[in-house]
Design a protein around this nucleic acid. Sequence first.
DNA 1: CTAAATGCAAAAAGTTTGCAAACGT
DNA 2: ACGTTTGCAAACTTTTTGCATTTAG
Lengths: 143, 143
Amino acid sequence: MSTNISKYTIERMKDSCLKITPQRVAVLEYLLHTDSHPTADEIYKAMENRFPSISLTTVYNNLNSLCENGLVQELSFGQTSSRFDSDTTNHYHIICSNCGKMVDFHYPELKEIEAFAEQTTDFEVSHHRLDIYGKCEICCKES
Amino acid sequence: MSTNISKYTIERMKDSCLKITPQRVAVLEYLLHTDSHPTADEIYKAMENRFPSISLTTVYNNLNSLCENGLVQELSFGQTSSRFDSDTTNHYHIICSNCGKMVDFHYPELKEIEAFAEQTTDFEVSHHRLDIYGKCEICCKES
DNA sequence: CTAAATGCAAAAAGTTTGCAAACGT
DNA sequence: ACGTTTGCAAACTTTTTGCATTTAG
């Protein structure tokens, strides 16, 4: 996590034919500098300070274009807001059922279960998603 | 999948202090007789025939009360509708990215990854959710 | 210069809420 | 009788769309 957006990231945007707008850079920069898996609205609110004119629509537009081009990952849930993650390498998440905190953890990819599913269901498997739920350290202490 | 709602299911409703209304019975009966993992709206539409007066609100009310009492499981996704499943035993799902079809598959529970997550994150793990994505047989043939 | 991006207001989709009337126990 | 459930209309939340204006390349 460097303080300035990397040249590599700018290159990846250019490679995807995405224009380098200040708003787009700010959204991606924010995601690169946090591990909190923020929602679109949280990103928007974080931006208001330094970027008073940005709109929530623009945040969504940019999250969508970044996701479509694989620079960002969307983690969607039920009725509640999606969360966004600039770490697009293979990893899983653990989520606190109490406060919603979301933490990364790395684990070897579950290829066996994908193979099993493919054999038993006649689907052509592309990927999977695993989320673990529990109670985070802070919420454990509070109860 | 029997044709009539089982006495056992009525008992489970009673045990949960849920009143046995025709609408509630119809919703649960429908879920027990299908493996299609329908949305609230699909259940509602399926009901309109035999049950012209039922409302979508009532379908939601009942799905919620049945979920709260563990008779039904909600599978929520992003912006799109939740799906509901009366099979509350441990099993996983595979979902067609093209047509949305959802199929059950059974696999030994992933206890190791839960234990690993607990060790590496300081969470107290309660459960997990795994969904596999791919293309179903029909959608594969069409492309 | 041109196509893409911005930002506003409005719409869309899914779900929940408030509430009066009806119903189950 | 009592508290629960029903079903209607309206609210709510998150995300998308339409569109005129602005901006990046």
